[in-house]
Computed example of a mutant assay.
Amino acid sequence: MPPTGFHHVELWVADLALVEPSWSWLLGELGWELYQNWPAGRSWRIGDMYLVVEQSSAVRPGLPYDRLRAGLNHLAVHAPDRGTVDRIQAAGPANGWQHLFADSYPHAGGAEHYAAYLADTAGFEVEVVAPAERGPDLAG
């Protein structure tokens, strides 16, 4: 059976120059590689998935993006370990990300969920999730 999951995700932004540095930093920290680079956009990939951030000429003018309106609320991405989540949480503000739910970091998603919640300057939220810790092996 072929793999399932996302092939790619495309975020349309009003100002690529405003958000590209923060996305480039975050995805680079998570091991994503720059995949495509053109005047109106960038894409990064990891494995066979990729993420596009594009300032498309087809974007309709109007209200700015609001993650609390109908549509995309946030992207959740895997981190390889808790140390990476901690490093991203610590360095996020210096790289264009603001903390969300900082008062309950790293367990804003619950006691068993270890994640950083960040928003870029355009308001897009990313949840950086560490793998669940495995308990002691109780077999045998």
Rank of each mutant, 00 (worst) to 15 (best):
Y114K: 12
A130S: 12
P3T: 12
L11E: 07
G41A: 03
R69D: 06
R82C: 03
T84H: 04
E33D: 12
P2R: 11
S104D: 15
A102V: 08
E33S: 13
L11Y: 03
P80F: 01
S56A: 09
L118W: 10
M1T: 05
R134I: 05
E33L: 12
P21F: 11
W38A: 01
A108C: 09
W97Q: 11
G110R: 03
V128N: 03
V13Q: 08
H107D: 02
G47W: 02
L30M: 03
V59M: 15
Y117D: 04
R69K: 15
V59Q: 05
P39T: 00
D15I: 00
V53K: 06
A91M: 08
V9T: 15
Q98R: 14
W25I: 07
S104M: 13
Q36E: 14
W44H: 13
A79F: 02
G135V: 09
P39S: 00
I46M: 14
P3F: 07
R45M: 04
W23T: 13
P2V: 14
E125L: 13
A111Y: 00
A76M: 14
A130H: 10
S22R: 09
E33C: 14
N37L: 04
D86Q: 09
G92L: 12
A111I: 10
A70K: 10
G5L: 03
A111V: 12
L18G: 02
L138M: 06
I88E: 04
W97M: 10
A130I: 11
D103P: 01
P39K: 00
R67L: 05
G110S: 01
W32D: 00
A58N: 02
V126A: 08
R69H: 14
M49H: 11
R42M: 06
F124T: 09
D86I: 09
G31R: 01
A111P: 11
G5S: 01
Q55T: 07
G28D: 10
H74F: 06
T84I: 14
P61K: 10
R69Y: 00
A94I: 01
G110A: 01
G92N: 12
Y35V: 02
D48R: 06
L51H: 11
S24H: 10
H74V: 05
G109Y: 05
A79H: 02
E54W: 00
W32S: 05
M49D: 11
R45P: 06
Q98E: 05
W23E: 07
G96V: 09
H8Q: 10
G110H: 05
Q89Y: 15
M49N: 09
R60D: 09
G47I: 02
G109I: 04
R134N: 01
H78A: 15
V85F: 05
G96H: 14
F124P: 13
P136Q: 13
D81Y: 03
